[in-house]
Structure formats: C-alpha cells, structure tokens
C-alpha cells in the first residue's frame, strides 16, 4: 500500500514536468526521489513508520 497522501502529477506550484512525479498532498510539494521510496513503501520502507510528514499529518487528523 502506498501513502494515501501521495499523488503523481506533472504540474504543481512553480514546477512542471514531462513525466508525472511523486507529489505530497500534505506539504503540497513534489517529493524528493529518496522520500518517494518511502511514499511507495518500497524495499523495507513504510510511510506510516518512516515518514515524519505522514506521522505529523496522521497526528493532526486524529486530534
């Protein structure tokens, strides 16, 4: 399962790309490639455990 905050977009903010890239809907920014592996739960990474942005978002949502 990938992060529910993840989208793939070609445009956002001041950026425009030829290929859709990982975009975090919580921070409203395109995601660094290393962080995109967390968003996608690749390898042994998991967004709920390894991403402080998701952690903060989930914490706010539960309040």
């Amino acid at each position: 399962m990938t992060c529910p905050l993840l989208e793939y977009r070609r445009d956002g903010g001041d950026h425009s790309f030829e290929t859709a890239r990982a975009y975090c809907t919580a921070t409203e920014t395109f995601v660094e490639p290393m962080r995109a592996d967390i968003c996608n739960d690749r390898y042994d990474l998991h967004h709920a455990e390894d991403c402080e942005i998701y952690e903060s978002h989930a914490s706010e949502a539960s309040e």
């Binding site: 950026h15 920014t29 395109f30 995601v31 660094e32 490639p33 290393m34």
Partner: peptide
C-alpha cells in the same frame, strides 16, 4: 545523486 532531483533544481 540519489536524494533530490528536478524538484530541487530543474
């Protein structure tokens, strides 16, 4: 590199 990409500098 393997950390940032075109989102940091096109």
């Amino acid at each position: 590199g393997g950390v940032h990409g075109k989102e940091a500098n096109p």
